[in-house]
Design a protein around this nucleic acid. Sequence first.
DNA 1: CCTGAAAACAGACCCCC
DNA 2: GGGGGTCTGTTTTCAGG
Lengths: 153, 153
Amino acid sequence: MVARLDEMDRKILVLLQEDASLSLDEIARRVGSSKTPVWNRIRRMREQGVILKQTAILDPEALGLEACFFVLIRTSEHEAEWQRRFLQVLRDRPEVLEAHRLAGDIDYILKVRVPNARAYDTFYQALISEVKIYNVTALLSMEEIKATTVLPL
Amino acid sequence: MVARLDEMDRKILVLLQEDASLSLDEIARRVGSSKTPVWNRIRRMREQGVILKQTAILDPEALGLEACFFVLIRTSEHEAEWQRRFLQVLRDRPEVLEAHRLAGDIDYILKVRVPNARAYDTFYQALISEVKIYNVTALLSMEEIKATTVLPL
DNA sequence: CCTGAAAACAGACCCCC
DNA sequence: GGGGGTCTGTTTTCAGG
């Protein structure tokens, strides 16, 4: 599962995380190599699943998605069928940007992006109507201090 | 701050969020337009800051970043100087992928990606040695159910 | 594994509608 | 604001060291 990468691979990944629109020539120049080897390494890392996709990062505020909530969920249900339905709801709802199953007394955490608090309430009502949940705490973000997709290499 | 976008702009953004490596011709074909108008719209959305950047999304597991923590922080300090130092630490630390200032009794939430629990402890020790913090709860992710950069349009 | 060249392709920008 | 064409640069492939 863990890919074996050398220093050159890592340098390429650092650059691609910063700006995936860099040309091969430019990447090659910055890592001290040339086009073809860089291209082969990128292709290999794609095939290995190290590079998952190439995406455009948008500004949520500019799109009117001005509210961000972290939702802490406790549940009494731990049956397979309940969990299957719960996960399906999370995956189907586009306002759920992240969902993790946790260790400890809180069972799940969600990150939810919506236009405003009203829209969060709509989401919340829909969620609890679809699956039974024991306890929910919503943490409202006042300020996004940092948000990056760049992983530490 | 909120950009005015029409249906065509939104369709283009949906495609670019899915796969930013699509060619202009391909995007134009799928949204029912042609190269030049699509190119002009993308350029405009870049200039407006709707499109922030283009990036490669990597698989954290494949890079050996197998531990993910959500960190809930309470602080007694609310002075400007303390806050400035705290935010600087968060921005400087590459393992902090997200940081939000919250409303309510929890002051901050962080998302932290590290190779393992040992590395989290190292981060935690460094954090509390650099700034005074009243109370910290770390939530360990057992399973990433969903993680997307695709915003709902 | 790298270099260098060649071919296919896509981006950027024109002018005309 | 959209459409077509063109030049330029980039990606991708391949032969050879």
